[in-house]
Structure formats: structure tokens, C-alpha cells
Design a protein around this nucleic acid. Structure first.
Length: 771
DNA sequence: CATCCCCTTGTTTTT
DNA sequence: CAAGGGGATG
């Protein structure tokens, strides 16, 4: 096919192509309806995408406003915007560079009225969804049929990602099956409640946008006309709803061909099947878009060849994939370090010690990351990192916005922004305690239902319902407070500027008595809660600084859509801990992959599912390819879970890493007789590990025997230590203090142990005694 | 209506 | 081992 368009346009300047390899250049320069960039890990895809956008602008093929770029996380979006700005200056401001979810919220807020929603809708997070489902399941006693919040929620989510809503489902369901009938009831009620609350859950954001475009073509039309160039990153992780959205947006508009679509992805990094990601979206891209061009990026600019060799060898075990081989022009680099601990704590101690070694050798803490398969594994790591005085940060996990006090504060704001949201109002009804119990709540709810008004509105009628004077006053006070806050956000005079979110939240927290209750409490945990509320206030201030015109609803949108990886602060001088899933798209100089054991990686829940093991292998692959220079693989012989210690076995994936790439500090084969007793027999290895075990056997056993670590935590109060003091450590034996740094609770002793080497210990919590 | 205590229950990843 | 629910008590 002749690309007439291309030759008639000015060409992209050489500066945009400088330093790009031939396939990268092709990916920047190709013009046509559809382009698939198969980008292996670390192959410079962000560079290609940003240069492609800059090229489109430079040749005047596109206005900034015609560009829609979709990334996986807000952090990635911010990064891309920044890099585009460096290339084209403030022209980047007019582009939409965001996640699927943010883009859809933006569209929905604009168009909500078209299909019966108000623009101030609430976004329900997984916690809200859980609470709602819990209530519905309890109400219908659905638990006796085997329904749980988890399984019902997962199923609803799955259906929504397939664009099946409750009514569509009702047409295909077999009502003779009581379980199916019950599920339909749950699904319907869940949908109905969300609708009544003027709320969308995460899945709705995508699915409802698709529905909106399909049901109201005149709404879709302006978006189709506007976005002429659509670019989607991490395409391998799109689900059906997201795919459908892209299809809707790339449909021809009146007198206009469909937008040009560029997708970037790597099917070897598809790790979100559980969330509905459909690997077929990328595998069948060429059938979907018959005129598609495919460009392959295989040269890696991130990792050493050793790391790439390991990654290539592991992923080669997945069948039905297109062969792909990552390579680098840089050297082989250091070998991969392997370590087998006796326990999760022992493994964690290895990680802590090794991080300290890296740090002494000049690697900054923020260049180091520790990955794991499940959040539960953070416990042991945290304990030891604290004790070893290694500064760290956990991404994801119990997130800031999931803490009860933060959810409370947010519920106050939501009650103001979206009075239809009964869940939010009910949450704050008796928080802080004002003597309004479940009975009162039920009465309010039924009053609202009888009179066809919202729960929020029912609060204004407390006197008519006939509560006692105390209860009625409590309700009226709350209602008045919410009214006062509402008036602040939506001033009666149109030319008056709305009051900043900070002041609204402060008013709500003060007048509701929330802050007073926390302050008066003797519970030490409430002190932390107080600090969290203050931190949230600081967040609102920061928000106002970044968005001078930002409304309450914008603040709520932003906070509802923060992802784990968004929290990563590159300037922080701390080690990053995160799950393998969160690690996608990131890179670090040194990476620790922990818990490389059967039942953990691959996880036992997915090992038996069809395609499960392959996806877990991709997860391992993603982890490996995050490392630039140093990669560590560790596992433990025993692991504590649910109060019990169980024996674990090395992951099948470990044997897929060529043995000559790993230098075992302590291999699974070595943790045998004398150390782990009978356990060793169950850890028998394939032949591939034999040489690894041999190489590491040079180290004296006593050395790592001293590294066995227990999981107790203690408090030494203000034990005084000075250089020269002799101490005894429960795990490391005796040693001499060589230095003391830090102050108060953060004093750190550097100790030269007689057998266990040099360690840094947080004096307050380390299991030590002065001799 | 609030608080305390016992019991059950659950074991993956998340926008 | 944890958190969360349910029941009994103040």
C-alpha cells in the first residue's frame, strides 16, 4: 500500500531520531491506521511513544488536542507528559495523557446527565464495593448458598469487564438454578444501589463509558472527531471493556476516517488476566486491524546480558508465544546472587544485609527494590528492615486511602459532593459517636424510602420522625454541618470563588468533633490516626497548590484513582518494597526477588488454573527484567502463614534459570543435614542446580549458621551503647560496637560480630543485651 | 447504645 | 495469626 500522506508532509527532524535504532525509528515514523509496537522489557518504548507524539506535532499532522495517550498508571502518565513536554514544550498541555480510568471519569463527568447520572458522582473503591456487597449478601442470606463478598464481587467485576450488565445477564441466566437466581438478585441490587447513590465502581468507569458511546452516538461523535491519534501503552493488559472503548473511539466520524491507533505491548508481560486482561487483544491485533503494521523492539537498554539471559531462558518455557530474544550491547555484568534462608526471617536478614552492603558500595537506597508475590510477605521483611535500620517504603499494601480515619474524612467530603451517596452519609452518621445507633439508622432509611427522598435529605426531617430530643439534635447538627459545607463549595453567587477543599475539610473535621475525639483519646493508635487526618489536610493543601481552580469533585476524583505505583517518590532515599504486579513498568539498579518457592510463585491458587502457571512465569519474568545491574533471587525453607510454619520447596521457575548465571550464597541443596534436618529431602533439586550448590560450598557453614534469625520484637527502651561496648545478640551472638549514630528511637549501632559479620542495628528493637 | 470477649474464618495479584 | 462478626454484659 502506498503511503501518500507521508511523502506529502514535511519530514521529522533528525534531532527527534537521534540515538534511535532502526526499529525505533520506524515506530516513530510509520503512518497509517494502526501500528503495533511489540516492545520487550527495557526496549525504550516510552522514548518511542513520546518521540512519535513529538513527530506528529512537528510535521503538523496533529494538533496537541488531537492526541490521546493512555497509560497504565497515573505515574506513567505523569512521566510521559513530562517527557513529551521536554520535546515539544507546552504544546503537551492540550493533550489527554492519562489512564483509562481517568480519561473515562473525565468523559463521564462531562456527559453524566445524558444518561441519568449527576456530574458529581462518587467513585466506589474496592472497600466501598465490599461494604455494599456485604450488606446485600447478609440481607438475602446468600451466604448459605455459598456466596461471599469475595466471590460475588469477583464475578460481578468479571461480568462488567466483559460488558455484561445485570439486565443482559438476566437474559442468559438459568433461573432454575437457585444459586444463579440468587446471584442475579445480588447483581441487580448491587447495580440498583450504585445507581441510586449516583456512583460508579472501578469497572463501571470503563463499561459505562462504552455503554454511553454505544447508546448515544451523538455523544461519541465529538470525541471521535477530536482524537485523531490514539496511543495505548501496556496493551497486553487491556480487558474486553477497554478494548471496546478503543474500538468505539477509533470508529469513523462523519466525513472523517477513524483515528490512527498505536498500541505498545509485550505479551510476555501480561500479568492481569485475573482482572480480565485478555491477551488476545494484542495477539490478534493484526486480525483486528487488517492494515496494521508491526514493529519489534528487542534491543534492551536497561539490564546486563546476564539478567537478560535469565529472563529469556525463563520465558522460553511458555509455549504458544512468538519467539523473542532480548539482547544488550553492554556487557554480561555481575552474576545473579541466590540465597536460601531457613525461614522467612532468615531470608529477610539476607536481604537487609545485602542492601547494606550495596549501600556501602555506593548504591543509593532508592535504587534498590524488594519484590514479592503476596502482600503477606512484607511482614517478615519489615521486621528485619526496621531492626537493621534500613530505610524502606512499602508501595501498595494497606494504602493511605484505605485507612478507616481517612475513609471517614473522605466520606464527609463525599457526603457534601454527592448527597445521593447513602453509603458515605451512613458511614459518618455515627462517626464520631453521637449516639445514633443501627435502629435510628434503619428508621431514617425507611423514612427516606417511604418519602422517595435521599438518605441525606431524611436527616433534615429528624424532628418529624419522632426521635428523642438528644438523637434528633445530633442528626440535625450533622445535617446543618453538611449544609454549611455544601454552601462553601457551591456559593450562591455565581461569581464567588468556591472555598478551597482544605477549608471545607477542616471545617468538617472540627465541627463534627472528629478531631476532638481523636485528640482526647488515650489510645496510642488514635495519635497515629490524628496524624493521618492531618496528613490528609496537607494533601488537600498540596492539591490546591497544584490545581488553583480545583473543585472538591476534582480532589475526590484524583484521590479515588491513585494506584500503588503512583506513590513512588523518586527523590525519597528509601528502599522500595512492592508486589511483583506493582513492579511492572518500573526499574531499579538492584532488585531482590523474594519467596521464589512453589505455592508462592507460582502461587498455589493459580498453579492449577488453565494458563495460571504461564501467567505466574510471566510475573517472574517481569520481576527479573526490572533489574539494571544486580539481581538477587531468594527463598526460604520454611514459611510462617496463619500462625503455622510450613515447609516450602524451591519454585519450578528457579530451575529454569541457567545454573551458570547464579552464584549461590546458600543454595537449596546446602540447607540440608545439620541445618534443616529432614527437611532437605523434600527440597531435592533437579540436576541443573548441582553446579550452583558446588560453587557456594566454599563458604564455611558456621558463617551462615549464625545468620538464622528469629521473629521476636522487643523494646530496649533507652539502652545506652557506646563504641567499644560488647553486646550479645539473640541471633548473631557476641560482637563489639564500632559506632553509634542517630538520635532517640532511631539510634543505630554498627556492630562487628565475632561470627556473623558487620551489621547495623536499630538499638531500640534489636534483640541485644549489653555485656 | 457501647464495649468487651470469644469464635470463626480466611490463604493472590489491583485499576 | 489477624480481623471481623456475633453475642453477652454494663
Amino acid at each position: 500500500m502506498v503511503q501518500v500522506v507521508q511523502t506529502s508532509l514535511p519530514t521529522t527532524s533528525s534531532s527527534l531520531l537521534d540515538g534511535l535504532n532502526p526499529p525505533q525509528r520506524e515506530a516513530v515514523l510509520h503512518r497509517g491506521p494502526a501500528l503495533l509496537i511489540v516492545a520487550g522489557a527495557g526496549s525504550g518504548k516510552t522514548r518511542v511513544l513520546t518521540h512519535r507524539i513529538a513527530s506528529l506535532l512537528e510535521t503538523r499532522e496533529a494538533w496537541p488536542s488531537q492526541v490521546l495517550a493512555i497509560t497504565f498508571t497515573n505515574k506513567a502518565a505523569g512521566e510521559m507528559r513530562e517527557r513529551v513536554r521536554q520535546l515539544v514544550g507546552h504544546a503537551s498541555d492540550g493533550m489527554w495523557i492519562s489512564t483509562f480510568h481517568s480519561a473515562c471519569v473525565r468523559i463521564l463527568r462531562r456527559e453524566a446527565e445524558v444518561f441519568g447520572y449527576a456530574s458529581g458522582f462518587t467513585i466506589y473503591d474496592s472497600g466501598d464495593t465490599r461494604a455494599l456487597l456485604k450488606r446485600i449478601i447478609k440481607e438475602h442470606e446468600a451466604d448459605v448458598l455459598g456466596f461471599s463478598v469475595a466471590n460475588a464481587g469477583a464475578r460481578i467485576s468479571k461480568l462488567k469487564n466483559e460488558l455484561v450488565d445485570a439486565e443482559t445477564f438476566s437474559r442468559e441466566v438459568n433461573l432454575a438454578d437457585p444459586k444463579e437466581a440468587m446471584f442475579l438478585t445480588i447483581f441487580r441490587e448491587y447495580t440498583r444501589t450504585l445507581q441510586a447513590a449516583n456512583a460508579f465502581d472501578f469497572d463501571d468507569l470503563i463499561a459505562q463509558t462504552v455503554y454511553l458511546f454505544r447508546a448515544f452516538p451523538h455523544v461519541a461523535e465529538p470525541y471521535r472527531r477530536r482524537f485523531r491519534h490514539i496511543l495505548v501503552d501496556e496493551y497486553q493488559d487491556t480487558n474486553h471493556a477497554q478494548y471496546a472503548l478503543i474500538r468505539e473511539l477509533t470508529k469513523p466520524a462523519q466525513n472523517l476516517p477513524g483515528a490512527s491507533l498505536t498500541v505498545v505491548g509485550d505479551s510476555d508481560q501480561s500479568i492481569y488476566a485475573f482482572r480480565g486482561a485478555d491477551i488476545r487483544n494484542i495477539v490478534e491485533f493484526e486480525q483486528d486491524f487488517p492494515q496494521a503494521r508491526v514493529v519489534l523492539l528487542e534491543q534492551n537498554y536497561r539490564s546486563t546480558q546476564t539478567i537478560l539471559d535469565a529472563a529469556n531462558a525463563v520465558i522460553a518455557n511458555n509455549f504458544d508465544r512468538k519467539p523473542k530474544n532480548l539482547f544488550t550491547a553492554d556487557g554480561p555484568g555481575a552474576k545473579i546472587t541466590g540465597f536460601t534462608g531457613y525461614s522467612g526471617h532468615d531470608e529477610a536478614q539476607f536481604v537487609a544485609d545485602e542492601i547494606e552492603q550495596l549501600h556501602r558500595d555506593g548504591t543509593e537506597y532508592r535504587e534498590v527494590a524488594v519484590f514479592y508475590r503476596t502482600n503477606a510477605q512484607t511482614r517478615a521483611l519489615e521486621e528485619i528492615l526496621i531492626r537493621s535500620a534500613v530505610p524502606y517504603r512499602i508501595l501498595g499494601g494497606t494504602k493511605f486511602y484505605e485507612r478507616a480515619e481517612i475513609k471517614d474524612a473522605m466520606a464527609y467530603l463525599i457526603s457534601v459532593a454527592n448527597p445521593a451517596d447513602a453509603l458515605a452519609v451512613r458511614r459518618i452518621l455515627n462517626t464520631p459517636k453521637r449516639g445514633i445507633g443501627p435502629a435510628t439508622e434503619t428508621q431514617l432509611a425507611s423514612f427516606a424510602e417511604r418519602n422517595g427522598i435521599t438518605f441525606r435529605a431524611a436527616l433534615r426531617h429528624a424532628k418529624e420522625i419522632g426521635f428523642g430530643p438528644k438523637v434528633a439534635k445530633a442528626i440535625t447538627d450533622l445535617s446543618d454541618l453538611l449544609d454549611e459545607a455544601t454552601a462553601m463549595t457551591a456559593p450562591p453567587e455565581p461569581d464567588m470563588a468556591p472555598i478551597p477543599v482544605f477549608d471545607v475539610l477542616k471545617l468538617l473535621m472540627q465541627k463534627s468533633g472528629y478531631i476532638d475525639v481523636l485528640r482526647a483519646s488515650r489510645d496510642p493508635q488514635d495519635e497515629a490516626r490524628m496524624e493521618n487526618v492531618e496528613e490528609l489536610l496537607a494533601v488537600t493543601k498540596e492539591f490546591q497548590r497544584n490545581n488553583p481552580d480545583g473543585q472538591l469533585i476534582d480532589f475526590l476524583t484524583e484521590t479515588a484513582l491513585v494506584a500503588a505505583a503512583d506513590e513512588l517518590d523518586d527523590s525519597s532515599g528509601t528502599v522500595s518494597l512492592m508486589t511483583l504486579h506493582t513492579a511492572k513498568g518500573l526499574e531499579f539498579k538492584a532488585v531482590f526477588l523474594t519467596g521464589i518457592e512453589e505455592d508462592l510463585l507460582p502461587h498455589r491458587m493459580s498453579a492449577n488454573e488453565p494458563g495460571g502457571a504461564a501467567e505466574e512465569r510471566r510475573l517472574f519474568y517481569v520481576g527479573i527484567t526490572r533489574a539494571r545491574e544486580r539481581l538477587y533471587l531468594s527463598l526460604a525453607m520454611t514459611r510462617n502463614s496463619y500462625g503455622e510454619t510450613s515447609v516450602s520447596a524451591p519454585s519450578r521457575f528457579l530451575a529454569e534459570v541457567p545454573a551458570d548465571l547464579i552464584e549461590w550464597r546458600q543454595s537449596p541443596g546446602m540447607t540440608g543435614p545439620g541445618a534443616g534436618g529432614r527437611v532437605a529431602g523434600s527440597l531435592a533439586w533437579g540436576s541443573s542446580s548441582a553446579s550452583g550448590a558446588g560453587a557456594a560450598a566454599e563458604r564455611p557453614k558456621a558463617d551462615w549458621g549464625a545468620n538464622r534469625v528469629t521473629g521476636r520484637v522487643r523494646d530496649n527502651g533507652d539502652l545506652e551503647l557506646a563504641p567499644g561496648d560488647r553486646i550479645r545478640h539473640d541471633d548473631f551472638g557476641e560482637g563489639r560496637v564500632s559506632a553509634v549514630t542517630g538520635v532517640a528511637a532511631k539510634r543505630i549501632a554498627e556492630v562487628q560480630f565475632d561470627t556473623a559479620g558487620r551489621k547495623r542495628l536499630l538499638i531500640k528493637v534489636a534483640p541485644i543485651t549489653k555485656l
